[in-house]
Design a binder for these strands. Structure first.
Length: 420
DNA sequence: TCTCCGATTAGAC
DNA sequence: CTAACGGTCTAATCGGAGA
Protein backbone atom coordinates (compact mmCIF):
# COMPACT_ATOMS: atom_id res chain seq x y z
CA UNK A 1 0.00 0.00 0.00
CA UNK A 2 1.22 3.46 -0.87
CA UNK A 3 1.57 5.68 2.16
CA UNK A 4 0.10 9.16 2.35
CA UNK A 5 2.69 11.20 4.19
CA UNK A 6 1.68 14.83 4.54
CA UNK A 7 4.07 17.67 5.23
CA UNK A 8 2.40 20.78 6.60
CA UNK A 9 4.62 23.84 6.39
CA UNK A 10 3.67 27.32 7.60
CA UNK A 11 4.02 30.07 5.02
CA UNK A 12 6.66 32.71 5.82
CA UNK A 13 6.27 31.65 9.42
CA UNK A 14 7.87 34.45 11.48
CA UNK A 15 6.32 37.14 9.30
CA UNK A 16 2.93 35.42 9.54
CA UNK A 17 3.25 35.36 13.35
CA UNK A 18 3.92 39.09 13.41
CA UNK A 19 0.97 39.74 11.12
CA UNK A 20 -1.50 38.07 13.47
CA UNK A 21 -1.27 41.13 15.70
CA UNK A 22 -0.75 43.61 12.89
CA UNK A 23 -3.49 42.93 10.33
CA UNK A 24 -2.51 46.21 8.68
CA UNK A 25 0.65 44.48 7.46
CA UNK A 26 -1.23 41.82 5.51
CA UNK A 27 -0.38 43.12 2.02
CA UNK A 28 2.79 45.04 2.75
CA UNK A 29 6.41 43.94 2.45
CA UNK A 30 7.65 42.70 5.83
CA UNK A 31 10.80 40.88 6.92
CA UNK A 32 11.95 39.44 10.23
CA UNK A 33 15.62 39.77 11.14
CA UNK A 34 18.00 37.38 12.89
CA UNK A 35 19.63 38.19 16.22
CA UNK A 36 21.35 41.57 16.37
CA UNK A 37 19.05 42.64 13.56
CA UNK A 38 21.70 41.09 11.33
CA UNK A 39 20.19 39.08 8.48
CA UNK A 40 16.79 38.53 6.91
CA UNK A 41 15.39 35.20 8.12
CA UNK A 42 11.75 35.47 7.08
CA UNK A 43 10.12 37.37 4.23
CA UNK A 44 6.58 38.12 3.21
CA UNK A 45 5.70 37.36 -0.41
CA UNK A 46 5.85 41.09 -1.18
CA UNK A 47 9.39 41.28 0.22
CA UNK A 48 10.39 38.23 -1.85
CA UNK A 49 9.00 39.85 -4.96
CA UNK A 50 11.05 42.97 -4.29
CA UNK A 51 14.17 40.80 -4.39
CA UNK A 52 15.10 40.53 -0.72
CA UNK A 53 17.12 37.33 -0.40
CA UNK A 54 16.91 34.77 2.38
CA UNK A 55 19.82 35.26 4.80
CA UNK A 56 20.79 38.58 3.28
CA UNK A 57 22.44 41.06 5.67
CA UNK A 58 19.89 43.74 6.46
CA UNK A 59 22.21 46.69 5.83
CA UNK A 60 22.52 45.49 2.22
CA UNK A 61 18.76 45.88 1.79
CA UNK A 62 18.60 49.35 3.23
CA UNK A 63 18.27 51.23 -0.03
CA UNK A 64 15.65 48.83 -1.29
CA UNK A 65 13.74 48.95 1.96
CA UNK A 66 13.66 52.72 1.98
CA UNK A 67 12.51 52.85 -1.59
CA UNK A 68 9.68 50.37 -1.07
CA UNK A 69 8.98 50.89 2.57
CA UNK A 70 9.81 47.38 3.71
CA UNK A 71 9.10 46.89 7.39
CA UNK A 72 11.85 45.03 9.24
CA UNK A 73 11.17 43.51 12.66
CA UNK A 74 13.57 42.02 15.20
CA UNK A 75 12.86 38.36 15.87
CA UNK A 76 10.63 37.50 18.81
CA UNK A 77 11.24 33.81 19.47
CA UNK A 78 8.94 33.34 22.47
CA UNK A 79 6.08 34.54 20.26
CA UNK A 80 6.95 32.17 17.43
CA UNK A 81 7.32 29.23 19.81
CA UNK A 82 3.93 29.94 21.31
CA UNK A 83 2.16 30.20 17.95
CA UNK A 84 4.00 27.10 16.75
CA UNK A 85 2.62 25.10 19.68
CA UNK A 86 -0.91 26.14 18.82
CA UNK A 87 -0.48 25.11 15.20
CA UNK A 88 1.14 21.78 16.11
CA UNK A 89 -1.63 20.93 18.56
CA UNK A 90 -4.16 21.25 15.75
CA UNK A 91 -2.06 19.17 13.34
CA UNK A 92 -1.44 16.44 15.92
CA UNK A 93 -5.17 15.90 16.23
CA UNK A 94 -5.32 14.63 12.64
CA UNK A 95 -3.12 11.58 13.07
CA UNK A 96 -1.56 9.58 15.89
CA UNK A 97 1.51 9.24 13.69
CA UNK A 98 3.12 12.64 13.46
CA UNK A 99 6.47 14.35 13.75
CA UNK A 100 7.00 17.97 14.60
CA UNK A 101 9.98 18.50 12.36
CA UNK A 102 10.78 22.14 13.05
CA UNK A 103 9.20 25.27 14.45
CA UNK A 104 7.04 25.62 11.35
CA UNK A 105 6.80 22.11 9.88
CA UNK A 106 5.06 18.88 10.78
CA UNK A 107 4.77 15.49 9.10
CA UNK A 108 1.58 13.55 9.64
CA UNK A 109 0.73 10.10 8.32
CA UNK A 110 -2.65 10.11 6.59
CA UNK A 111 -2.32 6.59 5.19
CA UNK A 112 -5.63 4.76 5.03
CA UNK A 113 -7.69 7.91 5.35
CA UNK A 114 -10.05 8.41 2.44
CA UNK A 115 -10.53 11.83 0.91
CA UNK A 116 -6.98 12.97 1.64
CA UNK A 117 -7.51 16.08 -0.41
CA UNK A 118 -10.65 17.15 1.43
CA UNK A 119 -9.00 16.53 4.80
CA UNK A 120 -6.02 18.61 3.70
CA UNK A 121 -8.19 21.57 2.81
CA UNK A 122 -9.94 21.20 6.15
CA UNK A 123 -6.58 21.28 7.95
CA UNK A 124 -5.60 24.46 6.14
CA UNK A 125 -8.85 26.15 6.96
CA UNK A 126 -8.81 25.13 10.57
CA UNK A 127 -5.23 26.29 11.13
CA UNK A 128 -5.82 29.69 9.59
CA UNK A 129 -9.11 30.12 11.41
CA UNK A 130 -7.85 29.07 14.81
CA UNK A 131 -4.35 30.56 14.71
CA UNK A 132 -4.20 33.01 11.80
CA UNK A 133 -1.29 31.16 10.22
CA UNK A 134 -1.48 30.17 6.52
CA UNK A 135 -0.03 26.75 5.69
CA UNK A 136 0.68 24.63 2.62
CA UNK A 137 0.36 20.86 2.49
CA UNK A 138 2.34 18.42 0.39
CA UNK A 139 1.51 14.73 0.23
CA UNK A 140 3.64 11.88 -1.05
CA UNK A 141 4.61 8.26 -0.37
CA UNK A 142 7.81 9.27 1.49
CA UNK A 143 8.98 12.22 3.54
CA UNK A 144 11.26 13.39 0.73
CA UNK A 145 8.41 13.33 -1.80
CA UNK A 146 6.04 14.99 0.68
CA UNK A 147 8.60 17.77 1.02
CA UNK A 148 8.81 18.10 -2.73
CA UNK A 149 5.02 18.12 -3.03
CA UNK A 150 4.95 20.88 -0.44
CA UNK A 151 7.37 22.87 -2.54
CA UNK A 152 5.01 22.50 -5.51
CA UNK A 153 2.00 23.49 -3.37
CA UNK A 154 3.82 26.65 -2.28
CA UNK A 155 5.00 27.56 -5.75
CA UNK A 156 1.86 27.04 -7.78
CA UNK A 157 -1.12 29.16 -6.78
CA UNK A 158 -3.27 26.81 -8.85
CA UNK A 159 -2.80 24.10 -6.23
CA UNK A 160 -4.54 26.26 -3.64
CA UNK A 161 -2.05 25.21 -1.01
CA UNK A 162 -2.39 21.45 -1.36
CA UNK A 163 -0.45 19.14 -3.66
CA UNK A 164 -0.79 15.36 -3.66
CA UNK A 165 1.97 13.56 -5.54
CA UNK A 166 0.13 10.27 -5.08
CA UNK A 167 -2.74 11.55 -7.22
CA UNK A 168 -0.51 11.76 -10.27
CA UNK A 169 -0.05 9.07 -12.92
CA UNK A 170 3.48 7.73 -13.48
CA UNK A 171 3.75 9.85 -16.60
CA UNK A 172 2.67 12.99 -14.77
CA UNK A 173 5.09 12.25 -11.91
CA UNK A 174 7.97 11.88 -14.34
CA UNK A 175 6.96 15.05 -16.12
CA UNK A 176 6.88 17.15 -13.00
CA UNK A 177 10.15 15.76 -11.56
CA UNK A 178 11.78 16.67 -14.86
CA UNK A 179 10.84 20.31 -14.30
CA UNK A 180 12.29 20.65 -10.80
CA UNK A 181 16.01 21.31 -10.29
CA UNK A 182 17.85 18.91 -7.91
CA UNK A 183 18.65 21.55 -5.36
CA UNK A 184 15.00 21.60 -4.34
CA UNK A 185 15.34 18.07 -2.98
CA UNK A 186 15.47 17.71 0.80
CA UNK A 187 19.08 16.99 1.73
CA UNK A 188 20.57 18.40 -1.46
CA UNK A 189 22.02 21.79 -0.64
CA UNK A 190 24.24 24.20 -2.47
CA UNK A 191 27.43 22.14 -2.55
CA UNK A 192 25.88 18.82 -3.44
CA UNK A 193 23.73 20.25 -6.20
CA UNK A 194 26.83 21.78 -7.78
CA UNK A 195 28.58 18.40 -7.66
CA UNK A 196 25.50 16.63 -8.97
CA UNK A 197 25.30 19.02 -11.87
CA UNK A 198 28.93 18.31 -12.69
CA UNK A 199 27.89 14.69 -13.05
CA UNK A 200 25.09 15.68 -15.39
CA UNK A 201 22.35 15.33 -12.79
CA UNK A 202 20.27 18.46 -13.10
CA UNK A 203 16.68 17.62 -12.32
CA UNK A 204 14.92 15.61 -9.63
CA UNK A 205 14.08 13.00 -12.27
CA UNK A 206 17.80 12.75 -13.16
CA UNK A 207 18.61 12.00 -9.52
CA UNK A 208 15.76 9.54 -9.20
CA UNK A 209 16.98 7.51 -12.18
CA UNK A 210 20.76 7.92 -11.75
CA UNK A 211 23.05 4.88 -11.70
CA UNK A 212 23.34 3.89 -8.04
CA UNK A 213 26.93 2.51 -7.87
CA UNK A 214 28.24 5.67 -9.54
CA UNK A 215 26.19 7.76 -7.18
CA UNK A 216 27.40 5.89 -4.11
CA UNK A 217 31.00 6.13 -5.20
CA UNK A 218 30.91 9.87 -5.52
CA UNK A 219 28.47 10.75 -2.73
CA UNK A 220 27.50 9.54 0.72
CA UNK A 221 24.92 7.05 1.92
CA UNK A 222 22.51 9.91 2.46
CA UNK A 223 22.41 10.54 -1.27
CA UNK A 224 21.52 6.91 -1.87
CA UNK A 225 18.73 7.06 0.70
CA UNK A 226 17.44 10.27 -0.82
CA UNK A 227 17.32 8.60 -4.22
CA UNK A 228 15.40 5.61 -2.81
CA UNK A 229 12.95 8.00 -1.19
CA UNK A 230 12.39 9.73 -4.54
CA UNK A 231 11.60 6.30 -5.95
CA UNK A 232 8.96 5.89 -3.27
CA UNK A 233 10.89 3.61 -0.90
CA UNK A 234 10.87 4.65 2.77
CA UNK A 235 14.33 5.37 4.15
CA UNK A 236 13.43 8.14 6.60
CA UNK A 237 10.78 7.16 9.10
CA UNK A 238 8.43 9.40 11.00
CA UNK A 239 9.96 9.74 14.45
CA UNK A 240 7.21 10.57 16.85
CA UNK A 241 9.33 10.98 19.96
CA UNK A 242 11.87 13.77 19.93
CA UNK A 243 15.15 12.30 21.13
CA UNK A 244 17.15 14.12 23.78
CA UNK A 245 19.80 16.48 22.52
CA UNK A 246 23.30 15.09 22.20
CA UNK A 247 24.86 18.49 22.46
CA UNK A 248 23.60 21.84 23.63
CA UNK A 249 25.05 25.09 22.31
CA UNK A 250 24.42 28.55 23.63
CA UNK A 251 26.21 31.35 21.82
CA UNK A 252 25.59 34.82 20.57
CA UNK A 253 27.16 37.58 18.53
CA UNK A 254 27.51 40.75 20.54
CA UNK A 255 25.92 44.12 19.83
CA UNK A 256 29.46 45.51 19.67
CA UNK A 257 32.92 44.05 19.93
CA UNK A 258 34.18 43.25 23.40
CA UNK A 259 37.69 43.16 24.82
CA UNK A 260 36.86 43.27 28.50
CA UNK A 261 37.10 39.94 30.30
CA UNK A 262 34.38 40.86 32.78
CA UNK A 263 31.92 41.48 29.98
CA UNK A 264 32.83 38.13 28.48
CA UNK A 265 32.36 36.44 31.85
CA UNK A 266 28.95 38.01 32.07
CA UNK A 267 28.00 36.76 28.61
CA UNK A 268 29.34 33.27 29.27
CA UNK A 269 27.39 33.16 32.50
CA UNK A 270 24.20 33.89 30.59
CA UNK A 271 25.06 31.17 28.06
CA UNK A 272 25.60 28.72 30.91
CA UNK A 273 22.21 29.54 32.43
CA UNK A 274 20.62 29.11 29.06
CA UNK A 275 22.27 25.82 28.19
CA UNK A 276 21.93 24.21 31.61
CA UNK A 277 18.25 25.07 31.72
CA UNK A 278 17.78 23.12 28.50
CA UNK A 279 19.93 20.34 29.89
CA UNK A 280 17.81 20.07 33.03
CA UNK A 281 14.55 20.26 31.13
CA UNK A 282 15.49 17.06 29.31
CA UNK A 283 16.72 15.58 32.59
CA UNK A 284 20.30 15.11 31.50
CA UNK A 285 23.81 15.74 32.70
CA UNK A 286 26.83 16.83 30.66
CA UNK A 287 30.43 15.70 31.07
CA UNK A 288 32.27 17.96 28.66
CA UNK A 289 32.21 21.74 28.41
CA UNK A 290 33.58 23.78 25.52
CA UNK A 291 34.04 27.53 25.65
CA UNK A 292 34.88 29.53 22.56
CA UNK A 293 35.49 33.12 21.45
CA UNK A 294 35.49 34.63 17.98
CA UNK A 295 36.62 37.93 16.58
CA UNK A 296 34.61 39.52 13.77
CA UNK A 297 35.34 37.41 10.69
CA UNK A 298 33.94 40.06 8.37
CA UNK A 299 36.57 42.59 9.41
CA UNK A 300 39.30 41.19 7.25
CA UNK A 301 41.78 43.92 8.15
CA UNK A 302 41.59 43.20 11.86
CA UNK A 303 43.60 40.45 13.59
CA UNK A 304 41.55 37.31 14.01
CA UNK A 305 41.42 35.04 17.05
CA UNK A 306 39.06 32.10 17.41
CA UNK A 307 40.23 30.19 20.46
CA UNK A 308 38.34 27.35 22.04
CA UNK A 309 39.00 25.02 24.93
CA UNK A 310 37.23 22.03 26.41
CA UNK A 311 37.32 20.18 29.68
CA UNK A 312 35.96 16.86 30.85
CA UNK A 313 34.44 17.04 34.30
CA UNK A 314 35.20 14.34 36.82
CA UNK A 315 31.47 13.91 37.25
CA UNK A 316 28.58 14.71 34.88
CA UNK A 317 26.50 17.63 36.12
CA UNK A 318 23.64 19.94 35.20
CA UNK A 319 24.32 22.57 37.84
CA UNK A 320 24.68 26.03 36.39
CA UNK A 321 26.94 26.95 39.30
CA UNK A 322 29.40 24.13 38.68
CA UNK A 323 29.37 24.61 34.92
CA UNK A 324 29.78 28.34 35.31
CA UNK A 325 32.87 27.91 37.49
CA UNK A 326 34.51 25.67 34.90
CA UNK A 327 33.47 27.89 31.99
CA UNK A 328 35.04 30.87 33.66
CA UNK A 329 38.20 28.90 34.14
CA UNK A 330 38.30 27.99 30.46
CA UNK A 331 37.47 31.53 29.42
CA UNK A 332 40.36 32.97 31.39
CA UNK A 333 42.72 30.52 29.70
CA UNK A 334 41.74 31.38 26.13
CA UNK A 335 41.12 35.11 26.52
CA UNK A 336 43.65 37.53 25.02
CA UNK A 337 43.12 41.18 25.92
CA UNK A 338 44.62 42.43 22.65
CA UNK A 339 41.69 41.17 20.57
CA UNK A 340 38.16 42.50 20.11
CA UNK A 341 35.69 39.65 20.30
CA UNK A 342 32.40 39.67 18.46
CA UNK A 343 31.01 36.34 19.57
CA UNK A 344 31.29 33.83 22.39
CA UNK A 345 29.58 30.64 23.37
CA UNK A 346 29.59 27.39 25.23
CA UNK A 347 28.91 23.83 24.14
CA UNK A 348 27.80 21.08 26.49
CA UNK A 349 28.43 17.56 25.24
CA UNK A 350 28.71 13.92 26.23
CA UNK A 351 25.20 14.30 27.52
CA UNK A 352 23.84 11.42 29.56
CA UNK A 353 20.59 10.46 31.11
CA UNK A 354 20.42 11.21 34.83
CA UNK A 355 19.30 7.70 35.69
CA UNK A 356 21.93 5.90 33.69
CA UNK A 357 24.58 7.80 35.58
CA UNK A 358 27.01 5.94 37.71
CA UNK A 359 26.51 6.84 41.35
CA UNK A 360 29.70 7.85 42.98
CA UNK A 361 29.09 8.12 46.69
CA UNK A 362 32.26 10.08 47.30
CA UNK A 363 31.22 12.80 44.87
CA UNK A 364 27.53 12.68 45.62
CA UNK A 365 27.88 15.73 47.85
CA UNK A 366 28.45 17.88 44.76
CA UNK A 367 24.98 17.11 43.44
CA UNK A 368 23.59 19.13 46.34
CA UNK A 369 22.87 21.84 43.76
CA UNK A 370 20.07 19.82 42.27
CA UNK A 371 17.35 21.01 44.61
CA UNK A 372 18.50 24.58 44.16
CA UNK A 373 18.41 24.17 40.37
CA UNK A 374 14.88 22.77 40.44
CA UNK A 375 13.72 25.74 42.48
CA UNK A 376 15.53 28.16 40.19
CA UNK A 377 13.92 26.63 37.07
CA UNK A 378 10.46 26.75 38.65
CA UNK A 379 10.75 30.39 39.61
CA UNK A 380 12.12 31.40 36.23
CA UNK A 381 9.36 29.49 34.49
CA UNK A 382 6.69 31.07 36.64
CA UNK A 383 7.88 34.66 36.77
CA UNK A 384 9.76 34.87 33.48
CA UNK A 385 13.22 33.99 32.30
CA UNK A 386 15.93 35.86 34.15
CA UNK A 387 13.99 36.37 37.37
CA UNK A 388 16.69 34.50 39.25
CA UNK A 389 20.23 34.72 37.96
CA UNK A 390 23.66 33.66 39.04
CA UNK A 391 25.31 36.56 40.83
CA UNK A 392 28.02 36.73 38.19
CA UNK A 393 25.45 37.47 35.52
CA UNK A 394 23.96 40.71 34.30
CA UNK A 395 26.27 43.44 35.56
CA UNK A 396 28.36 43.98 32.44
CA UNK A 397 25.73 44.45 29.81
CA UNK A 398 27.77 45.87 26.93
CA UNK A 399 27.63 42.59 25.04
CA UNK A 400 23.85 42.49 24.77
CA UNK A 401 22.19 42.09 21.39
CA UNK A 402 20.87 44.84 19.25
CA UNK A 403 17.09 44.53 18.95
CA UNK A 404 15.72 47.82 17.87
CA UNK A 405 12.72 46.63 15.93
CA UNK A 406 10.99 44.23 18.24
CA UNK A 407 7.24 43.85 18.31
CA UNK A 408 5.56 43.55 21.73
CA UNK A 409 5.32 40.08 23.31
CA UNK A 410 1.61 39.74 22.69
CA UNK A 411 1.14 36.12 23.67
CA UNK A 412 3.70 35.77 26.40
CA UNK A 413 3.41 39.06 28.26
CA UNK A 414 0.08 40.40 29.48
CA UNK A 415 1.44 43.91 29.79
CA UNK A 416 2.04 44.24 26.09
CA UNK A 417 -1.60 43.78 25.15
CA UNK A 418 -3.07 47.17 24.40
CA UNK A 419 -5.73 48.31 26.84
CA UNK A 420 -9.03 49.42 25.39
C1' DT B 1 47.11 -1.84 8.97
C1' DC B 2 43.37 -1.00 11.94
C1' DT B 3 40.77 1.55 15.14
C1' DC B 4 39.43 5.33 17.55
C1' DC B 5 38.34 10.06 18.09
C1' DG B 6 38.31 14.83 17.31
C1' DA B 7 37.69 18.01 13.53
C1' DT B 8 35.51 19.19 9.47
C1' DT B 9 31.82 19.27 6.18
C1' DA B 10 27.12 19.56 4.68
C1' DG B 11 22.56 20.13 5.40
C1' DA B 12 18.14 21.84 7.59
C1' DC B 13 15.44 25.67 9.13
C1' DC C 1 27.74 60.35 10.70
C1' DT C 2 29.20 55.52 9.98
C1' DA C 3 29.04 50.77 10.21
C1' DA C 4 26.29 47.20 10.02
C1' DC C 5 26.70 39.74 8.17
C1' DG C 6 22.29 34.11 12.89
C1' DG C 7 21.94 30.21 15.98
C1' DT C 8 21.30 25.10 16.97
C1' DC C 9 21.44 20.73 15.80
C1' DT C 10 22.61 16.03 13.47
C1' DA C 11 25.07 12.66 10.73
C1' DA C 12 28.71 11.35 7.81
C1' DT C 13 33.25 11.52 6.56
C1' DC C 14 38.11 12.74 6.92
C1' DG C 15 42.55 12.32 8.68
C1' DG C 16 45.99 11.83 12.19
C1' DA C 17 47.62 9.36 16.45
C1' DG C 18 48.36 5.41 18.66
C1' DA C 19 47.80 0.31 19.09
Amino acid sequence: MIRNIALIDCNNFYVSCERIFRPDLQKTPVVVLSNNDGCVVSRSNEAKELGVKMGQPWFECRALSEKHNILALSSNYPLYADISNRVMNILRSYSPIHQVYSIDECFIDLTGISKTREISYQIRERVIKWTGIPVCIGIGPTKTLAKLANFIAKKHPKSKGVFNYNDLSKIQQQKILNCIPVNKVWGVGHRLSTQLKESGINTVEDLKTAHIPTLRKKFSVVMEKTQRELQGVTCFNLEDITPNKKQIISSRSFGKSVSNINTLKDAVCTFVSNATEKLRSQKSHASVIHVFLKTNRFKVDQPQHMPSLAIRLPQPTNSSLTINRWSNHLLKKIFRPEYSYKKAGIILCEISDIHSQQVDWIESATSGDSKLMTTLDRLNQRFGRGTIKISAQGFYKEWKMKQERKSPSYTTDWNSIPRV
